[in-house]
Amino acid sequence: MVPIEIRDVSLIYDTPGGKVPGVKDVNLNIGASEFVCIVGPSGCGKSTLLNIVAGFLEPAAGEIRIGGKKVDGHGMDRGVVFQDFAQLFPWRTALGNVTFGLEMKGVPKDERERIAHEQLRLVKLDKFTGSYPHHLSGGMQQRVAIARALAYNPSVLLMDEPFAALDALTRDDMQRLLAEVWRETRKTVIYVTHNVSEAVYLADRVIVMTPHPGTVKAEIRIPLSRPRDPLSVEFLDFQKELLRHLGHETGTNEPTKTNGKADA
């Protein structure tokens, strides 16, 4: 897999109310096969940064290099998973959605269906290959989206709050599944979330961003062994540390951010 370098990246939004800095002077080095979570409150520029890496937005300054190659627009070296369930194409079955990228690549039909079946097995959906998205639950749809992003074998996986709109129980399952998928595929992952416990559960390293303008405030390494136990003391300590960086006083149980709301 490949490393990602983010150099002095800034982006300014041109709104009717004037120029608003989205992200400012962000520098990050992400190692090959590293799982990085970016956490921060709404408006801290975490999604903006992800969209710049994905190539959907162009930075006003700075550059992104993936595996040493400068990013210019979207490319098949990156797979993207969004929060919105609607990201799947409703006119294609689960299998059809997963084969899409391979089809664009020109992979022959038999081959791409074989790969897609494999990917769907990886996310435990091999029984639903022929279903249309509207027959699948939210969690299943997001799993199809993950399989879809992995199918054409990008080296980087970019995920923008993929589980934020799911209920808490489903989200737990999905996090476990994603950790497994990552262990098997060893993609370089950038994962945006506002859910602190999710970040501690998944990441090798957590980046904390703060808004106005969006900048990196802290970086915390999570050296815990996997699979991780969300109820262990160390786990909770990391969670507290993150919350402190985010400006939440610990000790009171008032702003438990652990159950991130599906609002973003």
Binding site: F56, G79, W91, F100, K105
Partner: peptide
């Protein structure tokens, strides 16, 4: 939906195929 367009682009669809595989079925 913008998100369909983005997903398709991320998966390497060029303009012509974006039109055939995403815009037309999406607008159907």
């Amino acid at each position: 939906k913008e998100i369909w367009v983005r997903s398709a682009q991320a998966m390497g669809a060029d303009d012509r195929r974006l039109f055939r595989h995403v815009i037309l079925p999406g607008a159907l």
